[in-house]
Simulated assay, not measured.
Amino acid sequence: MLIKPNPATPEGEAIIDLADLLDGLQESTGEWPGADTVDILGEWLSRFSFEVSEDFAQQATGRAWVLRQWDRHSDEVTLWADEASALAALAHGVRSSWDNVAGTDGAPYRPPADDRTAVDLYYGPIEERGDEDYVLFATEISRRVRPPLKLDLADFDACTLANSSAVFHAQEGPDGEGLPCIEVAGILVFSYLDADRGAVRVSVHLDTAAEELVRADTTVPIEVEIGDTTVFSNLTPPPPASPLTPGWRARIRRLARGVALHDNGRCREGG
C-alpha cells in the first residue's frame, strides 16, 4: 500500500520537498550522485527534530525523613516515614551505647526516656561531636508520571493509568496542617478521625477534578460505597440493584412454597 504525503502537514510538506529536490537532481544529472544526494539529505534532515518528547510530569508523592549516622567504623543512611520514628531509631542506638557517655559532661548514668533528650545528651554540642555524628532532615519523594492522553471513564487503560498515579498526602506530624488525603485525577478524598464530632469522617472534594470527568451539567459521576452498600450515586442510568438480602431470599422462598402448595392442593381437588 502506497503512502500519500499530506501537504497540509509539516511532515507531508517536507517529504514532498525532498521528492522535488531528488527529481531535480535526476533531471540535471541523469542520476543521483552520492555526494550531491548526501548534501540534499543532510540539509533536509536538519529541518527535523529527533529529540524524545518529555511529556512526563514530576509529582510529589509524599515526604520521607532521611537519617544519616556515622562514626569511625560505619556510615549508614536510612529512610523513615516521620521524624518521631527516625528519632526513636536513633535513640535506640544511643541507649545501647550509653556507657560511652554515662556520668560525663552532665550525662546521667541512665539514658532519659525521652528520645530527643537522649540523643542530644549523647551527641552533645555540634562543635564537639568529632567522628561520631548524625543528620536528620525531611525531603520530598517525587516521581515522574506520564498522564493519560485522554482521561475517559469508559477506557480501562486510561483509568488504570490515572489510578496508578494516585497520590497520598499525609498530615505532617501532630502539629502539621492539612488532613490525610488521597488524590486521583484531581479529586481529593479526605479520610480522617474527627475528635470534634467523635467520628471517622470521609470528605470528597471535586472542585479540582480533571476536566474530562466533568459532565455537561457540571457534575462528576460518582458512587460512594460503605462495605457492600451504595450510600450515594448520581450515575445515569442508576446502577443495577444490589443482590437481594438473605431475608428477602427467605421470604421469596416461603412465598414460592406457599404458591406451590396451593397449586398442588387445587390439583388434588380437581383430580
Rank of each mutant, 00 (worst) to 15 (best):
V119Y: 05
I222E: 00
R72H: 12
T230I: 15
E140L: 01
L136N: 04
P111A: 11
T78F: 01
T37Q: 05
E11I: 11
P111S: 06
E211T: 07
A162I: 05
W98K: 09
G270M: 05
L45Q: 09
D217N: 06
S85D: 01
A158R: 10
R63Y: 12
E43N: 14
S85C: 00
L161Q: 12
Q26R: 10
D36F: 01
L149Y: 11
P111R: 06
D115V: 11
I222N: 00
E132A: 14
D55Y: 10
Q59A: 00
T208C: 04
D105L: 08
G24K: 12
S46T: 15
D114A: 13
S242D: 08
R254Y: 04
I16H: 06
D114W: 06
L21P: 01
L255W: 11
V167S: 01
A91S: 10
L22M: 12
A162L: 06
V224Q: 03
D133Q: 12
L188R: 15
W80Q: 03
T245F: 12
R251K: 09
G62T: 01
F50G: 07
P10Q: 02
R197W: 02
E211K: 14
R116A: 15
I126H: 14
T117Q: 14
E54T: 02
A260F: 07
S165G: 11
V214S: 09
P237I: 05
S96V: 07
G270V: 04
L193Q: 12
L2T: 10
V259H: 11
L179H: 01
D131W: 13
G42N: 10
G186Y: 00
V167A: 01
R268F: 08
F190Q: 10
V94P: 07
S164Y: 01
P180E: 01
R257H: 08
T139F: 03
F168E: 02
L121V: 12
N6C: 03
E177F: 06
Q171W: 10
